[in-house]
């Protein structure tokens, strides 16, 4: 039999877009979404006895682990529910409720800490795939699980977090972790496109929100091994645009430092990352340049990459 698999869910719990979603047509309220996510988690755990799950949440400005809980929770056994499901459901719902209660002032401008949640999730996966050596050396350690991440996105890209986000993608590649993205609203998320493309994950925009559970179990449940037989939807067209390091804006044409490959939206005299000085003669060739490298008015190139 194939080895067990670990599924790490990342939920964007930012209140503003969730409020918008619950008033759109058809509405998708957070409560209904969580209920469907729970059934999906149960389905993942049902696949195999050894399967495991972790859930991370992203709120404006901070991220937290929602499951497994820090302490052990004692759940009352129920004769009508499989005990594994009962434990996960109880622990997960309890911590989500806790977080939502603690949420008081909503700061409009702060983007959700998706990168923080993603990093925590990758750290967790890394710990699972490199278990500490067993105390008894004669016992073979259990095989590390195949892991993947499923990210539920409800808000547009935060280009400020471009660099840490790309670092997360590369770490995921190195850990051989696929990042799947389930897009619940219509906003533009080119970095998430790139994340799916680079890690070999599925990207599915949910067009019929009332059928969310069907989307989840059809597209996101299959394990890496199964995907070799039953395909999952991926993107045909990937937007590979990057964000510049100076203003964190997405650029069509950028200027790249020849030493450290940092990206700038306009020619600069000195690379802000590695302090390499460029000769003014070379820079002159780019024409139309503003040698004050930090002016905020940059012209978005008209030529598309």
């Amino acid at each position: 039999m194939s080895s067990p698999s670990h599924l790490s869910l990342i939920l964007d719990l930012t209140p503003v877009p969730w409020d918008a979603l619950s008033h759109s047509t058809p509405p998708l309220r957070l409560k209904d979404f969580l209920a469907q996510a729970l059934v999906f988690i149960n389905a993942h755990l049902a696949l195999r006895n050894e399967n495991s799950v972790s859930v991370f949440g992203a709120l404006p400005g901070r991220s937290m682990i929602l499951y497994p809980p820090a302490g052990s929770t004692q759940v009352e056994a129920d004769e009508n529910t499989f005990h594994v499901f009962g434990q996960v459901d109880e622990g997960f719902m309890r911590s989500v409720e806790q977080e939502v209660e603690d949420l008081q002032e909503v700061e409009e401008d702060v983007p959700p800490a998706l990168v923080g949640a993603l990093t925590k999730s990758l750290c967790y996966i890394n710990r699972l795939s490199n278990p500490p050596p067993p105390s008894n050396p004669s016992e073979a350690p259990p095989p590390p699980p195949h892991s993947r991440i499923l990210l539920f996105s409800v808000s547009p890209d935060a280009s400020v977090a471009y660099i840490p986000f790309m670092n997360c993608i590369f770490s995921a590649q190195k850990l051989k972790v696929a990042i799947d993205v389930c897009k619940l609203d219509e906003s533009e998320v080119i970095f998430l496109h790139q994340a799916c493309h680079l890690t070999g994950g599925a990207f599915v925009p949910i067009t019929q929100r009332e059928a969310l559970l069907q989307y989840l179990s059809m597209c996101f449940l299959s394990e890496t091994e199964t995907r070799k037989t039953l395909a999952v939807p991926t993107l045909d067209k990937v937007d590979f645009r990057a964000a510049c390091f100076c203003h964190k804006e997405i650029v069509d044409i950028g200027y790249v430092c020849s030493v450290c490959l940092s990206i700038f939206c306009q020619p600069v005299l000195e690379c802000s990352t590695c302090r390499t000085k460029f000769s003014p003669d070379t820079l002159l060739r780019f024409g139309n340049m503003n040698l004050n490298g930090h002016a905020h008015t940059h012209s978005n190139g008209t030529v598309t990459a």
Partner: peptide, 15 residues
């Protein structure tokens, strides 16, 4: 039923 839990089937054993 198994995935959503609940019901009155008691098939997971009565604690």
């Amino acid at each position: 039923r198994a995935l959503t839990g609940g019901g009155e089937h008691r098939s997971f054993g009565v604690p």
